[in-house]
Simulated scan of single mutants.
Amino acid sequence: MWMKEKIIRINRTLFELEVGILIFGVVCQLFAFLTKDKAGYSLGLWLGILTAAVSAFHMWWSLDRALEFPEKEAVKSLSTHNILRYGFIVAVFTLIAISGRANPLSAFLGIMGLKASAYMHFLTRRVSGKIYGEESIPMPAEESVEGQKM
């Protein structure tokens, strides 16, 4: 029960994105078993998945933080954090390529889990619905034009 309470405290959209990244990693791992260098491909894939998950969390954190700033400061903050995030991804990818222990292409595939997760939103929405409960979105109030309802 404590795990469910911990998950509910996490932003729902972030949770859905992280679940999508994880699902993408599991599906890609099935194909990694078909390669000659299973360990190298798997290590690269999961380092890429971990990088994608950290990037998703950083994206949520920086967006959440920037909403409290005035417009110019928010744009500057978001730009700075985008550069930091991309720098982190490039650094991880470079270290993987230099080390020779993990496959850089499978690491790139894992990093693309961030994008794939966004496209799997229809699936991850169902998973979060089971944990968070169905989301009830209030209907917008009817606006009136010159005193008449639309």
Rank of each mutant, 00 (worst) to 15 (best):
I131S: 00
V75C: 00
L84C: 02
H81R: 06
S136H: 10
F57Y: 12
G133V: 06
K72N: 08
K38N: 02
A107R: 00
L47N: 02
F33A: 03
L67N: 11
F69P: 11
Y41I: 10
E134T: 14
K4Y: 12
G129S: 09
F88L: 02
I23V: 09
E5M: 12
S77G: 12
E5V: 13
L50F: 08
A97T: 09
L43A: 11
E134A: 13
F15W: 06
F122C: 15
G40C: 03
Y132I: 03
L105T: 14
I96N: 01
S55N: 04
M3L: 14
K38T: 05
P104Y: 15
E146G: 13
M139V: 11
R101H: 14
G48K: 00
G129K: 10
G87T: 06
S55A: 11
I21P: 02
L63A: 07
S136A: 12
L63M: 10
P138Y: 07
E142P: 04
A97I: 06
E135R: 07
E73W: 13
E5C: 10
C28W: 11
T51S: 02
V92W: 00
S106V: 14
R12E: 12
I111Y: 04
G25I: 05
E71F: 09
D37E: 10
A116T: 09
A102T: 11
V54D: 05
W60A: 09
F57K: 05
I131Y: 00
V145M: 09
Y41P: 02
F93L: 08
S144D: 14
T80D: 08
L14M: 11
W60N: 10
W61I: 11
T80P: 03
L30W: 13
M150E: 14
G129Q: 09
M120A: 06
R101W: 14
A56G: 08
F33R: 00
A102K: 02
Y132T: 04
K130G: 03
S99I: 07
P138V: 10
C28S: 12
I8K: 07
E68S: 13
V19K: 01
L105R: 09
E142D: 13
E5T: 15
F69R: 14
G48W: 01
L17Y: 10
A74W: 05
L78E: 05
G40V: 04
A116H: 07
A39D: 08
G25V: 05
A53R: 02
V90N: 01
H58Y: 13
L114G: 00
F69D: 15
H81W: 13
L109Q: 11
F122S: 15
L43Q: 04
G40M: 02
L105P: 00
V27H: 05
E71N: 07
I96V: 05
G100F: 08
F108D: 12
E135C: 06
T80A: 04
K36N: 03
L30P: 02
V75R: 01
G129D: 12
E146Y: 12
S99V: 09
H58Q: 06
N82W: 10
I8Q: 13
I111Q: 01
V54S: 01
R12W: 03
T94M: 01
T13A: 06
S128I: 04
D37T: 07
R125H: 15
F57L: 13
F69C: 12
I89C: 00
K72L: 06
I98G: 00
A53C: 10
I23W: 06
E5W: 15
L84I: 04
N82E: 13
Y119H: 05
P70T: 15
L43I: 14
L78N: 03
K6F: 15
Y119N: 07
F31A: 10
R9S: 15
S117C: 04
